[in-house]
Structures are given as structure tokens and as C-alpha cells.
Design a protein around this nucleic acid. Structure first.
Ligand code: SF4
Ligand code: SF4
Lengths: 131, 131
DNA sequence: CTAAACTCGGACCAGAACGGTCGCACATCG
DNA sequence: CGATGTGCGACCGTTCTGGTCCGAGTTTAG
């Protein structure tokens, strides 16, 4: 199914929210989730993942919170999805465990990979700044 | 996750196999699955789905089998996916049960829909004939 | 120094989606 | 009539994922 996961969806919402912040301001996970209507307990996890991938910066302590680590323009949808859902691949193979048997003689494998690249291109062209 | 389901994958393989047939020849599900290395019990189901969607034609009886109902060139990947996996939607909303709460005030919903349309475009541009 | 507010990270659970299997009714051909 | 093959729906076991909980470490306020 061609659908991005809830995690990625929320991640985009959160990043979008953070993109509207003053340069040196930060937003706590709690505030963000309340203000955006996201599950309060899930948001920190998503943000943490984004933080360790270097997309957002976190500051600890009482007045801590999150803010974008880079320009909103330079963060692509593709990157967010990759971080939150793992490297996606259009074809079921290459997923390690899912051996297909056909994998050696498969004639649709390479065309699918091209297709995959095209899709990722589309996702790469859109950034957080464009919502 | 951006990944097509096993069903769709198998569907593409099957259609590709059928596309290499003589115009008035048919291939039984059993033959096809053995020759292509697909799960023998799953193939009929995939083909049946494709048949009732009008992508392939089935002939019953002893010498029965399946064959393409239309030109290979005119069957797009998008169509196959839609038939086998249901109408995909990039964003989790609109899936009926998955109410998001944000859905009324969501600011990323429309941009995501545009993105979705672009992705489907990519999938529409490739046909079975190109593998 | 103490307490409060916040992040970090992993463990954990329930429910849905998915891949895969089985069985039976019906149609066609010899 | 019997063999072959489709049509279709019901049925499971596994995996994935959305969602929750808890403890530990950190910084600032008072
Ligand atoms: S090898 Fe071919 S049939 Fe198997 S999962 Fe990959 S693309 Fe699909
Ligand atoms: S956050 Fe917006 S895009 Fe995502 S599911 Fe909710 S309404 Fe749809």
C-alpha cells in the first residue's frame, strides 16, 4: 500500500509547527502535542527520533524543548519518511527477511527499482516549508 | 511506509507473464505460478481479482486459463495497485475509521493530497509493457 | 541544594493488516 | 460422466504499527 505511516504523518505536522517558530525559541513536546492535537505520549518519541537524526535540536532542562536544526526549506518529505519509517523500498524484496525465491531471476525487479527512485524523487522535491 | 504489497507485486509478475503470450492462448493459474515461482495457492486469488476488475479474461473448463483483456501498454501500474490493494491514499486520513481529530484544522492535508496525486501520476505513467 | 520541568530511551501491549491456506460450487471439454 | 480448471468466500497465524508506560539523566528556577 502506498501510504505513509502515522508516525511520518505526525512527524510532518510537528516539523511544520516548529517551522513557524522564532529562531531562538523552542517548543516542548507537551505544548506541541496539545496545540496540534496529537497524541501526547507519542509526540516525544517522534521528536526524539527526529532529534537523533539531526533534523531537530533538543534542549534539556526546565525550559527545554525542540526547534528545527536546519532551514525548513532544506528538509524534504523523503528525509522525514526515511527517518521515521526506515528506508522504504517499493518492491518487497531487499527487505532482508522477505526472500522471494524469484529474486535471482526476477525480471520486474529493476524496473520497479527505477519506479521507486522516481517516487522518492517526488518526495524529495517537496520540503517542510511547502507544508 | 512506501511499499507495494506482496499481492500487487505478484499481480505485476503475473500480468507480465501473461503479456508474453500468443493472442489466443491462455495460461492456467497453476502453470503460471509454477513457471514464475509464485505461491501456488495465492495466484488464483490474485488473478481472480484482476479478472473481476476486467484486466484479464478467464476461460473456464478443462483447457481454461487467463489472458490479458487489454493491450499490455494500456494497463498501468497504478491501476493494478488500485485493484489489488484498494485505492491508496498517501495520508492516513480519508481511510474512514482512522479519524484524526486534526482533520478539520489540518494544514498539511491539502499539500499531502497534491503529493499523493504526483506519486500516482508516476505510477500511472508506467505500464505492464515496460515491465 | 532542592525541586520542578523537560528530554531520552527502552520495554511493553493490543489491535489491525497482511500473507498464505483450505474447501466447495460451478463451468467446460473430451 | 469424469477430469481439469476457474470463482469465491471463509479461515488462520504472523507481523507490523499505533499507542502507552516507566525509569533515568539534565538543566534551570528558587
Ligand atoms: S524479486 Fe521480483 S517478485 Fe520477488 S519481491 Fe522482488 S520484485 Fe517482487
Ligand atoms: S494530521 Fe492531517 S494529514 Fe495527517 S491524518 Fe490528520 S488530518 Fe490527515
Amino acid at each position: 500500500m502506498i501510504r505513509l505511516s502515522r508516525k511520518s504523518d505526525y512527524g510532518l505536522v510537528a516539523l511544520k509547527a516548529l517551522s513557524g517558530l522564532a529562531p531562538d525559541d523552542a517548543l516542548s513536546a507537551r505544548e506541541l502535542s496539545l496545540q496540534q492535537g496529537l497524541p501526547v505520549d507519542l509526540t516525544p518519541k517522534v521528536l526524539a527520533r527526529l532529534a537523533q537524526a539531526g533534523l531537530v535540536e533538543s534542549s534539556m532542562g526546565k525550559a527545554g524543548g525542540y526547534k528545527l536544526a536546519r532551514e525548513a526549506r532544506s528538509i524534504s518529505i523523503a528525509e522525514v519518511v526515511r527517518v521515521l519509517d526506515g528506508e522504504p523500498s517499493l518492491a518487497p524484496c531487499r527487505e532482508g527477511i522477505l526472500e522471494c525465491g524469484r529474486i535471482d531471476t526476477c525480471d520486474i525487479k529493476h524496473p520497479l527499482e527505477n519506479l521507486h527512485r522516481e517516487v522518492m524523487d517526488v518526495l524529495s522535491r517537496m520540503s517542510i516549508a511547502q507544508l
